[in-house]
Design a protein around this nucleic acid. Structure first.
Lengths: 199, 199
DNA sequence: GTCTATAATTAGATAGAC
DNA sequence: GTCTATCTAATTATAGAC
Protein backbone atom coordinates (compact mmCIF):
# COMPACT_ATOMS: atom_id res chain seq x y z
CA UNK A 1 0.00 0.00 0.00
CA UNK A 2 1.48 3.31 -1.13
CA UNK A 3 -0.13 5.27 1.72
CA UNK A 4 1.48 3.06 4.36
CA UNK A 5 4.89 3.56 2.78
CA UNK A 6 4.27 7.30 2.52
CA UNK A 7 3.35 7.47 6.21
CA UNK A 8 6.54 5.65 7.19
CA UNK A 9 8.67 7.82 4.92
CA UNK A 10 7.15 11.16 5.98
CA UNK A 11 7.41 10.10 9.64
CA UNK A 12 11.08 9.17 9.36
CA UNK A 13 12.34 11.86 7.00
CA UNK A 14 9.89 14.74 7.20
CA UNK A 15 8.32 16.29 4.12
CA UNK A 16 11.46 17.84 2.64
CA UNK A 17 13.58 14.79 3.36
CA UNK A 18 11.10 12.38 1.77
CA UNK A 19 11.14 11.49 -1.92
CA UNK A 20 8.41 9.98 -4.04
CA UNK A 21 11.02 7.62 -5.49
CA UNK A 22 11.90 6.26 -2.05
CA UNK A 23 8.21 5.79 -1.20
CA UNK A 24 7.70 3.90 -4.46
CA UNK A 25 10.75 1.74 -3.72
CA UNK A 26 9.30 0.74 -0.33
CA UNK A 27 6.27 -0.78 -2.03
CA UNK A 28 8.13 -2.09 -5.06
CA UNK A 29 6.43 0.09 -7.66
CA UNK A 30 7.78 2.77 -9.97
CA UNK A 31 7.92 6.43 -9.02
CA UNK A 32 5.49 7.72 -11.71
CA UNK A 33 2.79 5.45 -10.28
CA UNK A 34 2.80 7.51 -7.08
CA UNK A 35 1.99 10.57 -9.17
CA UNK A 36 -0.68 8.73 -11.10
CA UNK A 37 -2.51 7.91 -7.86
CA UNK A 38 -1.99 11.11 -5.89
CA UNK A 39 -1.10 13.85 -8.36
CA UNK A 40 1.81 15.42 -6.48
CA UNK A 41 4.06 14.97 -3.47
CA UNK A 42 2.10 17.66 -1.61
CA UNK A 43 -1.23 15.94 -2.31
CA UNK A 44 0.22 12.62 -1.21
CA UNK A 45 1.30 14.19 2.07
CA UNK A 46 -2.16 15.60 2.72
CA UNK A 47 -3.88 12.32 1.91
CA UNK A 48 -1.47 10.52 4.23
CA UNK A 49 -2.07 12.95 7.10
CA UNK A 50 -5.83 12.86 6.51
CA UNK A 51 -5.70 9.09 6.93
CA UNK A 52 -3.68 9.34 10.14
CA UNK A 53 -5.93 11.90 11.81
CA UNK A 54 -9.00 10.05 10.58
CA UNK A 55 -7.70 7.00 12.42
CA UNK A 56 -7.15 9.10 15.56
CA UNK A 57 -10.68 10.51 15.40
CA UNK A 58 -12.19 7.06 14.96
CA UNK A 59 -10.15 5.79 17.90
CA UNK A 60 -11.20 8.67 20.15
CA UNK A 61 -14.84 8.41 19.09
CA UNK A 62 -14.89 4.71 19.96
CA UNK A 63 -13.51 5.45 23.43
CA UNK A 64 -15.81 8.39 24.02
CA UNK A 65 -18.86 6.20 23.41
CA UNK A 66 -18.14 4.53 26.72
CA UNK A 67 -18.58 7.83 28.55
CA UNK A 68 -22.25 8.54 29.26
CA UNK A 69 -21.55 10.64 32.33
CA UNK A 70 -22.05 14.38 31.81
CA UNK A 71 -19.26 15.07 34.29
CA UNK A 72 -15.90 16.25 32.88
CA UNK A 73 -13.58 13.94 34.82
CA UNK A 74 -14.43 10.70 32.98
CA UNK A 75 -14.33 12.58 29.67
CA UNK A 76 -10.82 13.85 30.34
CA UNK A 77 -9.64 10.43 31.44
CA UNK A 78 -11.02 8.73 28.32
CA UNK A 79 -9.59 11.39 26.01
CA UNK A 80 -6.20 11.18 27.69
CA UNK A 81 -6.06 7.39 27.78
CA UNK A 82 -7.37 7.22 24.23
CA UNK A 83 -4.71 9.59 23.01
CA UNK A 84 -1.87 7.78 24.77
CA UNK A 85 -3.13 4.48 23.40
CA UNK A 86 -3.11 5.90 19.92
CA UNK A 87 0.28 7.59 20.30
CA UNK A 88 1.82 4.31 21.46
CA UNK A 89 0.31 2.32 18.59
CA UNK A 90 0.98 5.00 15.95
CA UNK A 91 4.38 6.57 16.58
CA UNK A 92 4.21 8.14 13.11
CA UNK A 93 1.72 10.59 14.57
CA UNK A 94 4.30 12.07 16.91
CA UNK A 95 6.98 11.97 14.23
CA UNK A 96 4.92 13.98 11.76
CA UNK A 97 3.90 16.54 14.37
CA UNK A 98 7.50 16.92 15.44
CA UNK A 99 8.58 17.46 11.85
CA UNK A 100 5.85 19.91 10.91
CA UNK A 101 5.58 21.80 14.18
CA UNK A 102 8.99 23.44 13.96
CA UNK A 103 8.57 25.68 10.91
CA UNK A 104 5.75 28.06 10.18
CA UNK A 105 4.19 27.40 6.80
CA UNK A 106 1.11 26.24 4.93
CA UNK A 107 1.40 22.63 6.07
CA UNK A 108 1.51 23.63 9.76
CA UNK A 109 -1.35 26.12 9.31
CA UNK A 110 -3.47 23.44 7.66
CA UNK A 111 -2.66 20.90 10.39
CA UNK A 112 -3.50 23.37 13.14
CA UNK A 113 -6.72 24.65 11.62
CA UNK A 114 -8.24 21.32 10.65
CA UNK A 115 -6.99 18.90 13.23
CA UNK A 116 -4.96 20.24 16.13
CA UNK A 117 -7.01 23.21 17.33
CA UNK A 118 -10.22 21.13 17.71
CA UNK A 119 -8.31 18.44 19.59
CA UNK A 120 -6.62 20.86 21.98
CA UNK A 121 -9.83 22.77 22.54
CA UNK A 122 -11.64 19.61 23.55
CA UNK A 123 -8.95 18.97 26.13
CA UNK A 124 -9.10 22.59 27.22
CA UNK A 125 -12.83 22.46 27.97
CA UNK A 126 -12.39 19.45 30.22
CA UNK A 127 -9.44 21.04 32.00
CA UNK A 128 -11.28 24.31 32.59
CA UNK A 129 -14.19 22.41 34.13
CA UNK A 130 -11.91 20.45 36.43
CA UNK A 131 -9.96 23.53 37.46
CA UNK A 132 -13.23 25.19 38.39
CA UNK A 133 -14.19 22.11 40.40
CA UNK A 134 -10.87 22.41 42.28
CA UNK A 135 -9.53 19.08 40.99
CA UNK A 136 -6.76 20.37 38.72
CA UNK A 137 -4.08 22.92 39.53
CA UNK A 138 -4.42 26.42 38.21
CA UNK A 139 -1.83 26.11 35.41
CA UNK A 140 -2.61 27.50 31.92
CA UNK A 141 -3.82 24.85 29.49
CA UNK A 142 -1.06 25.60 27.02
CA UNK A 143 1.55 24.60 29.60
CA UNK A 144 -0.37 21.70 31.10
CA UNK A 145 -1.12 20.19 27.71
CA UNK A 146 2.39 20.56 26.33
CA UNK A 147 3.85 18.91 29.42
CA UNK A 148 1.52 15.96 28.90
CA UNK A 149 1.69 16.02 25.11
CA UNK A 150 5.49 16.14 25.06
CA UNK A 151 5.95 13.43 27.64
CA UNK A 152 3.28 11.22 26.07
CA UNK A 153 4.85 11.27 22.63
CA UNK A 154 8.58 11.47 23.28
CA UNK A 155 9.14 7.87 24.34
CA UNK A 156 7.39 6.38 21.31
CA UNK A 157 8.56 9.01 18.86
CA UNK A 158 12.20 8.51 19.80
CA UNK A 159 11.99 4.72 19.98
CA UNK A 160 15.31 4.22 18.13
CA UNK A 161 17.01 6.55 20.61
CA UNK A 162 15.43 4.71 23.56
CA UNK A 163 16.69 1.43 22.06
CA UNK A 164 20.15 2.88 21.56
CA UNK A 165 20.32 4.28 25.11
CA UNK A 166 18.53 1.65 27.21
CA UNK A 167 18.10 -1.38 24.96
CA UNK A 168 14.33 -1.11 25.45
CA UNK A 169 11.93 -1.59 22.53
CA UNK A 170 9.65 1.36 23.23
CA UNK A 171 7.02 0.07 20.82
CA UNK A 172 6.56 -3.31 22.50
CA UNK A 173 3.24 -3.70 24.34
CA UNK A 174 5.01 -4.20 27.69
CA UNK A 175 7.12 -1.06 27.45
CA UNK A 176 4.15 0.98 26.12
CA UNK A 177 2.01 -0.08 29.05
CA UNK A 178 4.74 0.51 31.61
CA UNK A 179 5.58 3.94 30.20
CA UNK A 180 1.91 4.96 30.11
CA UNK A 181 1.54 3.97 33.77
CA UNK A 182 4.70 5.85 34.75
CA UNK A 183 3.59 8.99 32.91
CA UNK A 184 0.13 9.01 34.46
CA UNK A 185 1.59 8.41 37.90
CA UNK A 186 3.92 11.38 37.51
CA UNK A 187 1.20 13.58 35.98
CA UNK A 188 -1.22 12.80 38.79
CA UNK A 189 1.00 12.79 41.86
CA UNK A 190 4.54 13.82 40.85
CA UNK A 191 7.85 11.99 40.77
CA UNK A 192 8.77 12.59 44.40
CA UNK A 193 8.00 10.05 47.09
CA UNK A 194 5.51 11.29 49.68
CA UNK A 195 5.29 10.47 53.38
CA UNK A 196 1.97 8.76 52.69
CA UNK A 197 3.47 6.42 50.05
CA UNK A 198 4.14 2.78 50.86
CA UNK A 199 7.85 2.15 51.39
CA UNK B 1 28.61 32.70 10.31
CA UNK B 2 28.09 29.51 8.31
CA UNK B 3 27.79 27.33 11.43
CA UNK B 4 24.90 29.39 12.79
CA UNK B 5 23.05 29.08 9.51
CA UNK B 6 23.77 25.35 9.41
CA UNK B 7 22.40 24.93 12.94
CA UNK B 8 19.19 26.74 12.02
CA UNK B 9 18.81 24.78 8.79
CA UNK B 10 19.50 21.34 10.30
CA UNK B 11 17.15 22.15 13.20
CA UNK B 12 14.30 23.17 10.91
CA UNK B 13 14.68 20.69 8.08
CA UNK B 14 16.63 17.74 9.46
CA UNK B 15 19.72 16.36 7.78
CA UNK B 16 18.04 14.98 4.67
CA UNK B 17 15.84 18.03 4.22
CA UNK B 18 18.74 20.48 4.52
CA UNK B 19 20.82 21.62 1.56
CA UNK B 20 24.24 23.20 1.51
CA UNK B 21 22.91 25.69 -1.03
CA UNK B 22 20.17 26.84 1.35
CA UNK B 23 22.68 27.16 4.19
CA UNK B 24 24.95 29.25 1.96
CA UNK B 25 21.98 31.43 0.96
CA UNK B 26 21.18 32.17 4.63
CA UNK B 27 24.64 33.72 5.09
CA UNK B 28 24.83 35.28 1.64
CA UNK B 29 27.76 33.25 0.34
CA UNK B 30 28.01 30.74 -2.49
CA UNK B 31 27.43 27.03 -2.06
CA UNK B 32 30.99 25.86 -2.92
CA UNK B 33 32.29 27.99 -0.04
CA UNK B 34 30.53 25.72 2.41
CA UNK B 35 32.43 22.78 0.98
CA UNK B 36 35.68 24.69 1.07
CA UNK B 37 35.29 25.26 4.83
CA UNK B 38 33.81 21.95 5.93
CA UNK B 39 34.57 19.42 3.21
CA UNK B 40 31.15 17.79 2.98
CA UNK B 41 27.56 18.10 4.16
CA UNK B 42 28.12 15.24 6.61
CA UNK B 43 31.22 16.92 8.09
CA UNK B 44 29.32 20.20 8.38
CA UNK B 45 26.57 18.43 10.30
CA UNK B 46 29.06 16.91 12.74
CA UNK B 47 30.86 20.19 13.29
CA UNK B 48 27.52 21.89 13.91
CA UNK B 49 26.40 19.27 16.43
CA UNK B 50 29.81 19.31 18.13
CA UNK B 51 29.40 23.04 18.65
CA UNK B 52 25.90 22.64 20.07
CA UNK B 53 26.82 19.92 22.56
CA UNK B 54 29.99 21.77 23.46
CA UNK B 55 27.82 24.71 24.40
CA UNK B 56 25.60 22.44 26.51
CA UNK B 57 28.59 20.96 28.31
CA UNK B 58 30.01 24.40 29.06
CA UNK B 59 26.63 25.52 30.35
CA UNK B 60 26.23 22.48 32.60
CA UNK B 61 29.83 22.72 33.86
CA UNK B 62 29.27 26.35 34.82
CA UNK B 63 26.17 25.42 36.81
CA UNK B 64 27.76 22.39 38.44
CA UNK B 65 30.58 24.53 39.82
CA UNK B 66 28.07 26.00 42.22
CA UNK B 67 27.44 22.59 43.75
CA UNK B 68 30.05 21.69 46.36
CA UNK B 69 27.75 19.43 48.34
CA UNK B 70 28.50 15.71 47.95
CA UNK B 71 24.80 14.95 48.32
CA UNK B 72 22.90 13.96 45.16
CA UNK B 73 19.84 16.18 45.56
CA UNK B 74 21.53 19.52 44.75
CA UNK B 75 23.39 17.85 41.87
CA UNK B 76 20.17 16.63 40.32
CA UNK B 77 18.49 19.99 40.78
CA UNK B 78 21.38 21.86 39.15
CA UNK B 79 21.60 19.40 36.25
CA UNK B 80 17.86 19.57 35.68
CA UNK B 81 17.62 23.35 35.92
CA UNK B 82 20.72 23.73 33.80
CA UNK B 83 19.30 21.51 31.10
CA UNK B 84 15.93 23.27 31.03
CA UNK B 85 17.67 26.60 30.87
CA UNK B 86 19.71 25.44 27.93
CA UNK B 87 16.76 23.80 26.16
CA UNK B 88 14.77 27.03 26.43
CA UNK B 89 17.61 29.18 25.10
CA UNK B 90 18.64 26.70 22.39
CA UNK B 91 15.53 25.16 20.84
CA UNK B 92 17.71 23.82 18.00
CA UNK B 93 18.96 21.23 20.47
CA UNK B 94 15.53 19.65 20.78
CA UNK B 95 14.89 19.99 17.05
CA UNK B 96 18.03 18.09 16.10
CA UNK B 97 17.41 15.35 18.64
CA UNK B 98 13.87 14.98 17.42
CA UNK B 99 15.06 14.70 13.83
CA UNK B 100 17.89 12.26 14.48
CA UNK B 101 16.26 10.13 17.17
CA UNK B 102 13.64 8.59 14.90
CA UNK B 103 15.77 6.54 12.51
CA UNK B 104 18.57 4.16 13.41
CA UNK B 105 21.78 4.99 11.60
CA UNK B 106 25.34 6.21 11.93
CA UNK B 107 24.36 9.76 12.95
CA UNK B 108 22.18 8.51 15.81
CA UNK B 109 24.81 6.00 16.94
CA UNK B 110 27.44 8.72 16.99
CA UNK B 111 25.15 11.10 18.92
CA UNK B 112 24.30 8.44 21.48
CA UNK B 113 27.82 7.19 22.00
CA UNK B 114 29.56 10.55 22.30
CA UNK B 115 27.00 12.84 23.84
CA UNK B 116 23.69 11.33 24.95
CA UNK B 117 24.75 8.25 26.90
CA UNK B 118 27.11 10.22 29.20
CA UNK B 119 24.40 12.83 29.81
CA UNK B 120 21.69 10.29 30.60
CA UNK B 121 24.03 8.27 32.80
CA UNK B 122 24.87 11.31 34.88
CA UNK B 123 21.16 11.86 35.46
CA UNK B 124 20.74 8.16 36.21
CA UNK B 125 23.35 8.15 38.97
CA UNK B 126 21.62 11.03 40.75
CA UNK B 127 18.22 9.39 40.39
CA UNK B 128 19.44 6.04 41.71
CA UNK B 129 20.89 7.76 44.77
CA UNK B 130 17.67 9.61 45.46
CA UNK B 131 15.55 6.51 44.95
CA UNK B 132 17.70 4.71 47.51
CA UNK B 133 17.25 7.64 49.90
CA UNK B 134 13.48 7.30 49.46
CA UNK B 135 13.06 10.73 47.88
CA UNK B 136 12.14 9.65 44.36
CA UNK B 137 9.54 7.11 43.29
CA UNK B 138 10.67 3.70 42.17
CA UNK B 139 10.15 4.26 38.44
CA UNK B 140 12.82 3.08 35.93
CA UNK B 141 15.17 5.87 34.85
CA UNK B 142 14.34 5.34 31.18
CA UNK B 143 10.69 6.22 31.85
CA UNK B 144 11.35 8.97 34.37
CA UNK B 145 13.88 10.70 32.15
CA UNK B 146 11.82 10.50 28.97
CA UNK B 147 8.81 11.97 30.75
CA UNK B 148 10.95 14.90 31.86
CA UNK B 149 12.99 15.10 28.68
CA UNK B 150 9.93 15.06 26.42
CA UNK B 151 8.00 17.60 28.46
CA UNK B 152 11.04 19.85 28.86
CA UNK B 153 11.75 20.08 25.15
CA UNK B 154 8.33 19.91 23.52
CA UNK B 155 7.19 23.43 24.29
CA UNK B 156 10.35 25.09 22.92
CA UNK B 157 10.86 22.65 20.09
CA UNK B 158 7.32 23.16 18.78
CA UNK B 159 7.32 26.93 19.30
CA UNK B 160 5.68 27.62 15.91
CA UNK B 161 2.89 25.17 16.78
CA UNK B 162 2.44 26.77 20.22
CA UNK B 163 2.22 30.15 18.49
CA UNK B 164 -0.29 28.83 15.99
CA UNK B 165 -2.46 27.21 18.69
CA UNK B 166 -2.26 29.64 21.60
CA UNK B 167 -0.67 32.80 20.23
CA UNK B 168 2.13 32.42 22.78
CA UNK B 169 5.77 33.05 21.82
CA UNK B 170 7.27 30.01 23.53
CA UNK B 171 10.77 31.39 23.16
CA UNK B 172 10.14 34.64 25.02
CA UNK B 173 11.76 34.83 28.46
CA UNK B 174 8.38 35.16 30.21
CA UNK B 175 6.86 32.08 28.57
CA UNK B 176 10.09 30.10 29.06
CA UNK B 177 10.12 30.89 32.75
CA UNK B 178 6.43 30.19 33.22
CA UNK B 179 6.65 26.88 31.38
CA UNK B 180 9.71 25.79 33.35
CA UNK B 181 7.87 26.53 36.61
CA UNK B 182 4.77 24.66 35.45
CA UNK B 183 6.80 21.64 34.39
CA UNK B 184 8.73 21.44 37.66
CA UNK B 185 5.53 21.84 39.66
CA UNK B 186 3.93 18.94 37.78
CA UNK B 187 7.08 16.80 37.96
CA UNK B 188 7.41 17.34 41.70
CA UNK B 189 3.83 17.18 42.91
CA UNK B 190 1.55 16.30 39.98
CA UNK B 191 -1.16 18.20 38.12
CA UNK B 192 -3.97 17.38 40.52
CA UNK B 193 -4.93 19.70 43.32
CA UNK B 194 -4.34 18.27 46.79
CA UNK B 195 -6.31 18.84 49.97
CA UNK B 196 -3.22 20.51 51.45
CA UNK B 197 -2.99 23.06 48.58
CA UNK B 198 -4.05 26.66 49.11
CA UNK B 199 -7.42 27.32 47.50
C1' DG C 1 -3.37 0.58 -13.48
C1' DT C 2 1.46 0.01 -14.30
C1' DC C 3 5.25 0.48 -16.98
C1' DT C 4 9.44 2.95 -19.82
C1' DA C 5 11.34 7.11 -21.33
C1' DT C 6 12.37 11.55 -20.54
C1' DA C 7 12.07 16.63 -19.46
C1' DA C 8 13.29 20.29 -16.19
C1' DT C 9 15.23 21.32 -11.86
C1' DT C 10 18.10 20.80 -8.01
C1' DA C 11 21.34 18.20 -5.17
C1' DG C 12 26.40 17.55 -3.44
C1' DA C 13 30.91 18.10 -4.90
C1' DT C 14 35.26 19.53 -7.72
C1' DA C 15 38.37 22.55 -10.72
C1' DG C 16 40.35 26.63 -11.44
C1' DA C 17 40.45 31.90 -11.71
C1' DC C 18 41.23 35.90 -8.72
C1' DG D 1 39.03 32.87 1.27
C1' DT D 2 35.58 33.62 -2.18
C1' DC D 3 33.99 33.39 -6.60
C1' DT D 4 32.25 31.24 -11.48
C1' DA D 5 31.73 27.26 -14.10
C1' DT D 6 30.69 22.66 -14.33
C1' DC D 7 30.13 17.49 -13.49
C1' DT D 8 27.20 13.69 -11.95
C1' DA D 9 23.43 11.99 -9.67
C1' DA D 10 18.90 12.51 -7.89
C1' DT D 11 14.44 15.05 -7.68
C1' DT D 12 9.42 16.09 -9.16
C1' DA D 13 6.63 15.65 -12.84
C1' DT D 14 4.75 14.48 -17.66
C1' DA D 15 3.97 11.77 -22.10
C1' DG D 16 2.83 7.78 -24.08
C1' DA D 17 3.04 2.50 -24.74
C1' DC D 18 0.76 -1.72 -22.99
Amino acid sequence: MILDAALAEFAEQGYEGSTTASIARRVGVTQPLVHYHFGSKEALWRTTVDGLFGKLQLHLAAMQELVTDSDSAPGLVELTFGFMDFAAANPEFACILNHEGVVQGPRLEWLTEYYLRPLFERWGVYLDDLKEAGLVRDIPNAYLLFVFFGAAQHFFHLAPLVKSLYGIDARSPEASQAYTNALLEVMLTGATKKASDPS
